[in-house]
């Protein structure tokens, strides 16, 4: 233990370290995270700050980019589209993901297989997966050709290049982020509670409603939060499979960068970042979510 905790000479300059050295055991946790902290500070936090600064001081110190937001109809609509899409996708992930998480926890021999099936798409690039959805959802893709062959439709439906396509593809990409925290919470439930419930005469449904569901809420909260915040930042998928009006906030930011309106792009980025941070901060105070944060620390 003490060997691992030796401070790295690269990470912390010696002068700053001296008082730390005196009772260094107390600072072991800090020393362990110091290399990553410095890495993130230099290569992530500072560039992000420099970028955000552009929203305030380009061309001179001004709040005009932020006041412009209030009159910008395009921003308002884009923000609404982004938010709306994230809500739908998160709900879709929850409805599809919860049963899978239960299956994953209950399965004995099949569990590793289920886990691989869940994680497999996780290891494939978003670009490739979006292309795959184009092949599946296209007017002459697998789904349309299949429904035609079965006689369920008489002409190909437009699925690709619609909001529905965006939602389907995003749910697919984000499902693991919902399933894994829920499965984690389900796994923590003491099996003797379930035996006690049925011993006291509860039907399987009552056991689910009154025991499993409440005890898994921390996982649901963590999964929902993670999925929602990630969904807010989607760019490639809606651009590739989405409809003509599916402009997300990230796409608008990219467009402003390309149109050389960098100050406004920075302003929009600040709004996106603040929204994500705001949701995370607000969610901490929700019952159950605090647990989820603590749970993920274990």
């Amino acid at each position: 233990m003490s060997e691992i905790a030796q401070p790295s000479p690269i990470a912390v300059p010696l002068g700053a370290v001296r008082p730390l050295l005196r009772n260094w055991r107390r600072h072991v946790p800090l020393m362990l995270v110091a290399p990553l902290l410095i890495y993130m500070l230099v290569l992530y936090a500072l560039p992000v700050l420099a970028m955000l600064l552009r929203s305030l001081n380009d061309p001179t110190w001004t709040l005009s980019h932020y006041t412009a937001l209030f009159e910008d109809v395009v921003f308002a609509k884009t923000f609404w589209i982004t938010f709306n899409t994230s809500v739908i996708v998160t709900l879709g992930c929850l409805i599809l993901g919860y049963p899978v998480a239960m299956g994953l926890v209950r399965a004995k021999t099949m569990a590793p297989l289920i886990l691989v099936v869940i994680l497999l798409p996780f290891w494939t690039s978003v670009l490739v997966r979006s292309y795959a959805w184009m092949v599946l959802l296209g007017r002459h893709g697998l789904i349309n050709e299949g429904l035609l062959a079965l006689g369920m439709i008489d002409r190909p439906m437009r699925i690709l290049n619609t909001s529905l396509a965006t939602q389907i593809a995003m749910i697919h990409i984000l499902l693991p982020y919902m399933i894994l925290p829920i499965a984690n919470a389900l796994r923590q439930i003491d099996p003797s509670l379930l035996r006690a419930a049925s011993g006291l005469g509860a039907t399987p449904f009552m056991t689910f409603r009154q025991v499993i569901l409440p005890l898994s809420m921390s996982g649901v909260a963590a999964g929902t939060l993670l999925t929602f915040v990630l969904a807010l930042g989607f760019y490639i998928t809606p651009a590739m499979v989405g409809g003509p009006r599916d402009i997300t906030l990230s796409m608008l930011i990219a467009q402003e960068v390309d149109q050389l309106n960098w100050a406004y792009a920075a302003t929009l980025s600040a709004v996106l970042l603040a929204t994500a941070l705001g949701i995370l901060a607000a969610a901490r105070h929700l019952p159950g979510v605090g647990n989820a944060f603590r749970m993920s620390m274990r």
């Binding site: 292309y131 184009m134 092949v135 893709g141 050709e145 299949g146």
Partner: peptide, 12 residues
């Protein structure tokens, strides 16, 4: 004739 997305894949 049922051709599962073959043309699409070929097209891509």
């Amino acid at each position: 004739k049922y051709t599962p997305g073959r043309r699409t894949a070929l097209g891509l």
